Amino acid sequence: MKLVVGLGNPDREYRDTYHNIGFNAVDILAARLDAPAFAYDKKSNAELADVALGGKVLLCKPQTYMNLSGDSVGYLSRYYKIDMRDIIVLYDDIDIAKGVVRARLDGSAGTHNGMRDIVSKLGGTGFARVRIGTGFKPNYMSLADYVLSHFSSGERDLLKAACEAACDFTEKWIKGEDWQELTVTVAR
């Protein structure tokens, strides 16, 4: 079994914010894979959908709020006995320009609190990650205000294209296709 996790915040007010770009990407992946509708699972405190693609794939959107994402991921990895190498996390990254997507099989949590919590709850960094660039925080904004701000209608197409690229990487990972580290810049 493989676990694909998109990071975000559960409330409607956070929809279309930079911090919810992981949720957006997993929604696109679910549509591509003809997954059933996401259903809330109380034990993991996550919305889940499963599909078969060369084996069972569990799609997950933690409902814990970003900074506690590891609670859902840790629970699911223990309950289903999912090896860390069979987990991939899609999430926003303010240290990468908008329209740039980077995928790696391992690495640090960087400045992302949701990833820090996942690393802590899994006890290591040996899981894949796809970082979707949301651009650099303007000097006049706090980090929290920036990541929770809504992206403009003009950015919508660029960020959707970045999510599509993130899904391309994720599908390759699910299928076991060989990649170590990939970076792509979508058209602006």
Results as ranks from 00 to 15, higher is better:
residue 4 V to Y: 05
residue 5 V to R: 01
residue 9 N to L: 05
residue 9 N to V: 02
residue 11 D to K: 04
residue 15 R to S: 07
residue 16 D to F: 03
residue 17 T to Q: 01
residue 19 H to Y: 03
residue 22 G to T: 04
residue 23 F to H: 03
residue 24 N to M: 14
residue 25 A to Y: 06
residue 25 A to F: 07
residue 28 I to L: 15
residue 30 A to H: 02
residue 31 A to F: 09
residue 31 A to Y: 09
residue 32 R to Y: 11
residue 36 P to F: 06
residue 37 A to W: 02
residue 40 Y to G: 07
residue 45 N to D: 15
residue 46 A to D: 10
residue 47 E to G: 11
residue 47 E to K: 11
residue 50 D to M: 12
residue 52 A to T: 12
residue 53 L to Q: 12
residue 54 G to D: 13
residue 54 G to H: 12
residue 55 G to C: 06
residue 56 K to D: 11
residue 56 K to A: 09
residue 58 L to Y: 06
residue 60 C to A: 15
residue 61 K to Y: 06
residue 62 P to D: 03
residue 65 Y to E: 04
residue 68 L to A: 12
residue 69 S to C: 04
residue 71 D to Q: 14
residue 71 D to V: 11
residue 73 V to C: 10
residue 74 G to V: 11
residue 75 Y to E: 07
residue 76 L to W: 08
residue 77 S to C: 15
residue 79 Y to C: 07
residue 83 D to N: 13
residue 84 M to Y: 08
residue 85 R to Q: 13
residue 86 D to E: 15
residue 87 I to K: 08
residue 88 I to H: 05
residue 90 L to M: 14
residue 96 I to P: 02
residue 102 R to A: 05
residue 102 R to M: 10
residue 104 R to M: 12
residue 108 S to E: 12
residue 109 A to E: 12
residue 109 A to T: 06
residue 109 A to Q: 07
residue 110 G to Y: 10
residue 111 T to Q: 05
residue 112 H to E: 10
residue 112 H to R: 10
residue 113 N to P: 08
residue 113 N to E: 02
residue 114 G to N: 04
residue 116 R to Y: 02
residue 119 V to K: 04
residue 124 G to Q: 08
residue 129 R to T: 06
residue 130 V to I: 14
residue 131 R to Y: 02
residue 134 T to A: 13
residue 136 F to R: 14
residue 140 Y to S: 15
residue 145 D to N: 08
residue 146 Y to P: 06
residue 146 Y to F: 15
residue 148 L to N: 00
residue 149 S to W: 00
residue 149 S to C: 00
residue 152 S to I: 01
residue 152 S to F: 00
residue 153 S to P: 05
residue 156 R to Q: 09
residue 157 D to M: 01
residue 161 A to K: 13
residue 163 C to E: 11
residue 163 C to L: 04
residue 164 E to R: 01
residue 165 A to Q: 14
residue 167 C to Y: 05
residue 168 D to S: 10
residue 168 D to L: 07
residue 170 T to F: 10
residue 175 K to F: 02
residue 176 G to E: 10
residue 176 G to S: 09
residue 177 E to M: 11
residue 178 D to T: 12
residue 178 D to N: 12
residue 179 W to A: 13
residue 179 W to P: 09
residue 181 E to R: 14
residue 182 L to W: 06
residue 183 T to Q: 15
residue 187 A to Q: 02
